[in-house]
Design a protein around this nucleic acid. Structure first.
Lengths: 355, 355
DNA sequence: CTGATTTCCGAAACCGGTTTCGGCAAGTGT
DNA sequence: ACACTTGCCGAAACCGGTTTCGGAAATCAG
């Protein structure tokens, strides 16, 4: 074993810099440094500044798990993906994660992701994450009408934020895009083109968004002074195949619609297929407006007119809201909604003339 | 303030059970419990069993961040997504994450995910994650020929595992699907159908997979005794648009091919479009074999013949390998490859007869 | 039966932070 | 000039684990 002189610095030089190092460099104690770093009021401004400068200079970064042992918080956001969910969410995943990560890391937080393949597995996953203190709060994508995640976390008194809105708002913070507004605007747009028989193909009815978008569609029909034909309304279409099936049913009615509003882009692509099989040209014989803004829509023939959602921005907002929620901010200030962006492409046109 | 009798248990009953609780319940010290839980050799088997039983009974789970303070390890795997990457990776993301999560959680580990939007941002992200001890090792999807992530982590002496293989194998563990084998088999399959002029559309050349698949294509052509025409080879096609562009170029040659092998499914969908514009029917006038197994391929007209990759399984293997790597297992045992699965659908057919 | 090893476990230090408590010095009121 | 605050910081306990060290009891060799 090598004998070092006075043991001044025999440990390897590149070991991590701790709070003790900062304290020593300033002739303070680590308690003072800790309080200065965390902005406690019983530290003079001068000292606080000195400490923060030195911390910066020495590039001191407290270990979140060392803090967690006392504070119980890891500075980590939890996200549990549900794969049983329809594929329609997958194209958004990368953007969404990018947003969450960006929002989190801008505040020095990280993202802990887990996947579950069944309802029970999902519950277990949440519980394991909580038990191990792996997340200080959760982002819940795709709010459901009856959401077991909300029940679980509310009971456990764990902060969370919804992507989507819920009826039972107690304890819920959220971010959402106003799908109902988009659906209403879609109808108004079609009505302004002369359409009077307008169909509606909704998404998964267990999700909160479906009720909202349906309400928006109905509202739009009323505002436009149009009658709603129940035969022109379909549900639970979240894939292209779903959309094609439902659309075929609607288009083969006695009095088919001249336009269809879809709650989900993928369903609209199914409408394209169904229309083609019925010999209808999209944008001429049949107008379509949808919602989501998937890339495939832009490349479809004709390009799909839709209401686009910025999932990256949503991720950023959600992580920011959750962090504020964890920090104890008031719920009322943690509820945000934005409008979807109308992207007018080629799948709509004036109502076809009878012949 | 309420005065409690003897202070026996005045704290709320549902506080987390700690190692001390287990120790007390057994009349042991926490050091003994710790060593028993971690399988140290200086604990009698009888005691170890007693401890583990009691831990189970009391549902004691050590806090990973409390352990980390001493061990430096959080039981967490890191994944840094690169969004500058082409979209072709996105459809796989959900499956891949599910696999990673499954593999990790089966060993009691978790997944920390971050996203980066530029090369510099990526480097910073890795460094921040390391500095904060947020990950004990990393999964590196899409191995690149010159991979800055490998350089970084190798220098920092941080465990990692590649999805893909690298030329510079020093310090690299990996899991990969044998793309070169698939490309060779694709050629052989087409040759057995009588095709002699076979084109090849490769993917992103900065990725390791592209060289391998190209080598596989060449090998296949040689094995089949076919000549390679450089005019029938294209590169860097990872999206449908790329594929269409490259395919158009190839199909408008003097002597166009009767079949095309694509390194990437998305490119193949572009070939569909280009072929349709050239008046060629896929599966009749032009055969196509691709690679990846994206869902869109199954729904294309005709359904795309391809080599399918199980990204969920890949995720499971990768997380398992990384955990073993972190535990110090020998590199030589941490290199796995599997074959892609041939899915023979409708995009191939016998070579068209001249007319 | 004795001395030397092992075997097994407890005591205590430690990891890197946070937080409680208390005390010194300066400021305030009279 | 004196008691009383107030502002600011150090000392030490604490969080929930891991690890070093040492010692008692059990085992072994002779």
């Amino acid at each position: 074993m090598s004998v070092s002189f006075a043991g001044l610095d025999d440990r390897r030089a590149n070991r991590r810099v701790t709070i003790k190092d900062v304290a020593d460099a300033l002739g303070l104690t680590k308690s003072t440094v800790s309080r200065a770093m965390n902005g406690y009021p019983d530290i003079s401004e001068a000292t606080q500044l000195r400490v923060k400068r030195m911390a910066e200079k020495m590039s001191y970064h407290p270990l979140s798990h060392a803090q967690a042992i006392k504070t119980g918080r890891t500075r980590s956001l939890g996200l549990v993906l549900q794969l049983s969910d329809h594929d329609a969410q997958r194209p958004f995943l990368a953007e969404f994660l990018a947003g969450l990560s960006a929002g989190a890391s801008s505040e020095g937080w990280t993202l802990t992701v887990a996947a579950s393949d069944s309802h029970d597995d999902m519950i277990r996953t949440f519980q394991a994450l909580l038990r191990d203190g792996k997340a200080d709060g959760f982002i819940l994508p795709r709010a459901m009408i009856e959401d077991p995640r909300v029940a679980l976390l509310r009971d456990a008194n764990v902060p969370f934020v919804l992507f989507g809105r819920q009826n039972d708002t107690a304890g819920c913070a959220w971010f959402d895009v106003l799908g109902e507004e988009a659906m209403r605007d879609a109808v108004m747009h079609l009505a302004s083109l002369g359409h009077r028989r307008i169909g509606f193909i909704n998404g998964g009815m267990k999700y909160a968004y479906a009720s909202l978008r349906e309400a928006g569609f109905i509202q739009g029909m009323q505002d436009a002074g149009l009658a709603i034909d129940p035969n022109l309304i379909g549900q639970n279409a979240v894939t292209q195949a779903d959309g094609a099936r439902v659309a075929t049913k609607i288009l083969t009615q006695q009095k088919p619609p001249t336009a269809i509003v879809c709650a989900v882009d993928f369903a609209a692509l199914g409408v394209y297929r169904a229309a083609s099989e019925c010999g209808l040209r999209i944008g001429h014989d049949l107008s379509v407006v949808a919602y989501d803004g998937i890339p495939e829509g832009a490349h479809a023939q004709p390009p799909l007119t839709t209401f686009s959602v910025d999932n990256r921005a949503a991720g950023i907002r959600l992580s920011t809201l959750l962090i504020r929620r964890i920090r104890g901010e008031d719920l009322a200030t943690l509820r945000e909604t934005v409008s979807a962006q109308f992207v007018d492409r080629g799948s709509t046109g004036p109502v076809p003339t009878m012949n």
